[in-house]
Design a protein around this nucleic acid. Sequence first.
DNA 1: TCATTGACTGACTGTTTAGTCAGTCAATGT
DNA 2: ACATTGACTGACTAAACAGTCAGTCAATGA
Lengths: 187, 187
Amino acid sequence: MDKREKLLETALELFVSQGFNDTPTSKIAKEAGIATGTLFYFFPTKDDLIVSLYLKLKGHAAESINAALAEVKSTKAIIQSYYEESLKWSLRNPSEFLFLAQFSNSPYLKKVGADKISAQITPVLQLFSSAVEEQKIADIDVNLLYALISNQVFGVNQYLSSNKFTKKEQHSIILDTFAMFWKMIER
Amino acid sequence: MDKREKLLETALELFVSQGFNDTPTSKIAKEAGIATGTLFYFFPTKDDLIVSLYLKLKGHAAESINAALAEVKSTKAIIQSYYEESLKWSLRNPSEFLFLAQFSNSPYLKKVGADKISAQITPVLQLFSSAVEEQKIADIDVNLLYALISNQVFGVNQYLSSNKFTKKEQHSIILDTFAMFWKMIER
DNA sequence: TCATTGACTGACTGTTTAGTCAGTCAATGT
DNA sequence: ACATTGACTGACTAAACAGTCAGTCAATGA
């Protein structure tokens, strides 16, 4: 069993339930059944651990979402897949999602290079660029479009996770809210 | 000069730039030019200080937004005012907004009673309720509508604050994005 | 066989922290 | 004139913390 992985997993759960402050490295190590020294063997500082976890989760999410994008054809269908897959990933990985939200709204975000962040969003920006060029959607700054879709995903995830819906209901809400989103931006 | 107020102001700036963990109570007191003991005279624990700050800011924001709502007539106009005023408040009070975002996405949120939170959103929920009854907008769960408008406000604020726009440009983006929002939910 | 490596350990430490407390002082009330 | 109050102080402490380090041990490889 990979101890580095085990530490990241344990840290995730503790960070989500207690926050960064109230989760000492000693507790993470103890809970993971690993010595404190080992934690610092893999991650030189606590900040390193936190940022590594962020990067890992961002990577996983992107991987999972992009996998579903590949098969698709029309610009609208790609954007719809991006929307659906983002929501499905968040619903499947609630702890991961909470961590990402907590991290992104904390001063820790500054510790991640701006280049790594823009690398993550560039593909989505290009998606919207194409849609604008193809005159499918209104001529809106792609950065604004990105802000709108991300936050709508965030909001719908919030709504879905704070209510008990069946898978079927969840899926239809996802489809409905995308239809609404598209109505909002279409030409 | 009100020392309690001064402490809250100083804490706000430090929390926003350093985060909750990395802002010791001693630093808040020092920066505010007030003794450590005084901080604990007003706020029994650090958590108390943090939660008090949250409640104060939420109150201020609500007050400022509701003030503008009173004058207005049609349901659509009220919702539009709510949207505009929320955004304007966020733009006028960037530190406050950042603190609220950080707090709301942290485990500290659990320390605020659910009753206090629902008290804040009930008026908005009723606004949407009326709009649905009047058949102005589609028959969508008001909680979903709330999630959508809050997060769109959040996203547009993000977009506006990470770009240098003139007041005029800002205003027209606010109007445009509300028009989009309305298009998304209207019947 | 013996040396070297590198993952891994956990007792330890220097520092930082939230929170305490005995006491000051100016303003009130009597 | 004296007592009482309550905002306010800052040196202090007990606990908790991130990070260290001297050393163990199994697996390589010469």
